[in-house]
Design a protein around this nucleic acid. Structure first.
Lengths: 245, 245
DNA sequence: CAATTCTTTTGACGCGGATCAAGGCGGTCC
DNA sequence: GGACCGCCTTGATCCGCGTCAAAAGAATTG
């Protein structure tokens, strides 16, 4: 008797654990503001998605049906001009939300930079859930607010900073971004290519490369490999980033 | 008897009308999603503020105590680098919300471009109200979402567009912004100076001026006065804005 | 591990837009 | 209404970064 009743409950809980409760990115995402009951609701509409490096999850102009929450890996979101010029508007990591800034259609494209896993939600179902969970809505507004502040910083960077200042700023903000891979102090992992860095900072690959070698030869950074570097003089890099050098 | 009871009610209603119910910007702001009861709650914590052209309402770095809703006029928000370089991250008009993207301290400064009126709220009181009014929170999230999309467009502009493309884009988006002064088709009002336009587009005043005269001499626009112009060939301007010319 | 290919680095050169410098054009204030 | 003052326009020059080109590494494949 007891076991007959216990079984389904057990199953339901195991199902939860398989998606949300055991999610390594939960602590960094909007999900962290949900209590166990809410989490179950979220779990019911969540769908796991795996992407290989380079695969798209969102295409600008397509109807915005889904929202995503990154659980591992990293994603680039970008906009294109008709002639192919690209502006990467953000690099997103575990815990980040993809698709907040969307109306009817996606206003940007999104692709995995490296092999990644995501939680996918139907927008309609998600909206319904959010309406019943004020804490979730609050968390979302909070996220959006932070993204807006970050966007303003990026506008300052793109509109008014020199190439050196842009790259210094970029190197300083990157390490704090990926919660699943907390870097050793002043160690920076660059999962993206030079071309992606360039398109994020409004520069060309050549300029990115030149500035990095200049930082290297002046001893501000040390290149450990193509995608890994160490900030040797954080103080000086901060000065450069703010235009005080 | 009846009149004794009626009086205070009357007063309360008149007080409402004096701030929210009679507000000309209500239809364009987050307030539009409030029913009369909610509006009364908002009214209770709203405070009217008048600013003359040039006066500040928010200073970067100050503790973020207040939030604002613009009821008339226009506002510029911007960030500065230590050496004085300025990036204007937005021009805001009636119905727009100022202070969404703030944590503990304001991350940007805000000043009236022309004489303006605003509704001011204590952040703490506003938060409390929002928690009780899911529709208001929803409206705020919606606003933030739109601002994020706009910010991404601006990043594309600042990172990848030429001076001509930037100014063409700017002229096309401006007229749709100020709901209290719906412009005649293709008529553009420029309440901001050339220097403000430059700092919004990541250019210098000289470049702004040169491009405007070029647009004038090629017949794409006509300058009616310093702060008023007509788009003569909207189609061509759109092509320029998207880099197809 | 050689061959191919893609990415990054490095170098030479050119251009778009910044900087520097006058001049024009309204507004405002005695 | 004349003189001042701030903003805008126009011109001349300069320079940071983009463009073009090629070499040097990495990564990938058979």
């Amino acid at each position: 008797m007891l076991e007959l009743r216990a079984l389904p409950t057990d199953c339901a809980q195991r199902r939860q654990e398989s998606v949300c409760v055991g999610c390594g990115a939960r602590a960094f995402s909007v999900c962290s503001s949900l209590d166990p009951a809410d989490l179950a609701g979220l779990d019911a509409i969540a769908e796991r998605v795996s992407l290989k490096a380079g695969e798209a999850l969102i295409r600008e102009g397509d109807p915005a049906i889904h929202l995503f929450n990154i659980t591992s890996g990293s994603v680039r979101i970008y906009k294109l001009l008709p002639d192919g010029r690209r502006q990467i508007t953000g690099f997103l990591f575990a815990g980040d939300f993809v698709g907040l800034a969307t109306g009817e259609d996606y206003a940007f494209s999104g692709e995995a930079i490296e092999d990644s896993t995501l939680c996918r939600f139907r927008k309609s179902e998600y909206r319904a859930l959010v309406r019943e969970r004020p804490r979730l809505e609050e968390a979302l507004l909070d996220r959006a607010t932070h993204e807006l502040a970050a966007a303003q910083n990026q506008m300052l960077l793109l509109g008014r900073k020199t190439a050196q200042e842009r790259i210094a700023s970029f190197l300083l903000e990157l390490p704090s971004r990926d919660p699943l891979r907390p870097q050793a102090e002043d160690q920076v992992r660059l999962p993206m290519t030079r071309s992606e860095i360039a398109d994020y900072l409004g520069l060309t690959i050549e300029t990115v490369s030149r500035v990095l070698t200049k930082f290297k030869t002046t001893g501000v950074i040390r290149l450990l490999s193509l995608s890994e570097l160490r900030i040797e003089e954080p103080e000086r890099l901060r000065d450069i980033a703010e235009g005080e050098a």
